[in-house]
Simulated assay, not measured.
Amino acid sequence: MRVEPPVPEAALAAIRAPLEAAGATRADAPLLQPLNLFLDLAGEAMRARLFVVQAEGGAEACLRPDFTVAIARAHLESGRRDGRYLYEGAAFRASAGAERPEEFLQVGLELFAPQSQGGDGAAEAADAEIAGLAWRACAAGGRADLSLRLGDVGLFGPFIESLSLAEGLAARLKRVAGRPRLLQAELARTGETAGGARGTLASILSGLSQAEAGALLEEVWALAGVEPVGGRGPAEIAARLVRKAEAAAAPALTDDQAGAIRAFMAIDDSPDAALARVGELAGRNDRALNAALEGWARRLAELARVADPHRMRFAPALGHAFDYYDGLTFEVVSEALGPERPVAVGGRYDGLLARLGAGLGGGEGRAVGCMVRPWRAWDGGEQ
């Protein structure tokens, strides 16, 4: 395994200082994490980038690929309604075709708040605070070629609503907003006639509850003598089969609708120009979209106090490897390293709390966080 070189202590202290000053509690996360959870969040394609381990007869696990999910789970298990957590430690991800470190240092901050604290601009203020802290931490590393790339997965939903699509089609598109590969597959279906083959098993499963569908699939496995592998349960597999069958049978986008979505996904400009373009494509006749654009005006006003607006870009489709982000997304990028090696990433992930908290009696809340790579932030580090 290729290990990232250490950052000199003075440089590391400067990079972590803005995050330490945010008044957060120190937190850690177990080195081993449940593989199934990360595959749910990033798709099966992520498996090739994870270091998978499995004891004989046990569930598959992976070396910690990031801290956000683990910190969020620990927060939910604590029963606290709000919290700020600072972390620092090694993460592990296999290099995708390049000779890059596979064990590397991450420093980050995760902020949690009750759902009720999202009004009156509180969520936008938290977004701007986290993105600003990430920017200051990266800038403390000494690089002079940094820029702040902003996005918003949450803009896609209101934009889709403004296109007046069929209900099922709109819902499916919203589900894949943060997963470019799946969205491109939907765009590739443009012009197809509805009513594709669903398959007998998928048709039967689609009429059942998730628990009933899972029980039926488990019975089919038992009759066929099938032993499932990979850690996925029957209910989850049944749900995926039904979604795929429904996608094949549902109406496809028209050429005009697909063109509007492609134009939206292609936006990449200064924040003011990019957000104006979003409004133009949607016709500015959607209340939810207008509210989202107003929220961005507040975020940008806050961020302008920390970072030079001329070093900011906005691309609404900006996403990350894990698809739990459902609002603001951002990256701090070095011109020397390029967009494939961001210095920091982060964003809002309110929906992840509900997904993780399903087995803990709830989990609604608001969450936003950031992760900084000190070896990339330091001007004497990665080149």
Results as ranks from 00 to 15, higher is better:
R16E: 15
G207S: 06
L146I: 11
H75D: 10
P316D: 05
D308P: 07
F51C: 10
L201A: 11
G295Q: 00
A274I: 08
G97P: 00
V107A: 10
L39Q: 03
L241Q: 11
C62L: 12
E167H: 06
E280H: 05
A70Y: 01
R16K: 11
V69Q: 02
A252I: 09
G97I: 09
E167D: 15
A98G: 12
D145V: 14
A194C: 08
G119M: 00
E129L: 15
R100L: 15
L39K: 05
N36L: 12
R232H: 13
V52M: 08
F322D: 03
W375K: 02
R179D: 13
I71M: 06
R172W: 07
P180N: 04
A11D: 12
G142S: 11
G231S: 06
C62D: 07
G191C: 10
R136C: 07
E236K: 06
G347C: 09
A45P: 01
A24G: 10
Q33A: 15
L216A: 12
P271Q: 07
L182D: 15
R189Y: 04
G380F: 03
L133N: 01
F104S: 11
F156Q: 04
A74H: 12
A126T: 00
R16Y: 02
A42N: 04
A123T: 00
D255F: 05
V372W: 01
P180L: 08
T193V: 15
G351S: 13
V343E: 04
S164R: 14
R175S: 14
G283V: 05
R47T: 08
L173K: 04
T25E: 15
R299H: 01
G327A: 09
R299K: 10
A213S: 13
G351P: 03
G151F: 03
P271A: 02
L353C: 02
R348Y: 01
R100I: 11
L356W: 03
R341A: 11
Q257N: 10
A90E: 14
F322W: 09
Y325N: 03
L187E: 12
D66A: 14
L146M: 11
R2P: 00
P158F: 05
Y349N: 05
G283P: 03
R2K: 13
L41T: 03
A144W: 00
A282V: 04
A74N: 12
A235G: 08
A48S: 13
L169T: 12
L201Y: 10
A215C: 10
I15V: 12
A144H: 08
C370E: 04
A307C: 14
A292D: 09
S334N: 08
L111P: 00
D286Y: 02
G89W: 00
L182C: 05
S147Y: 06
A139I: 11
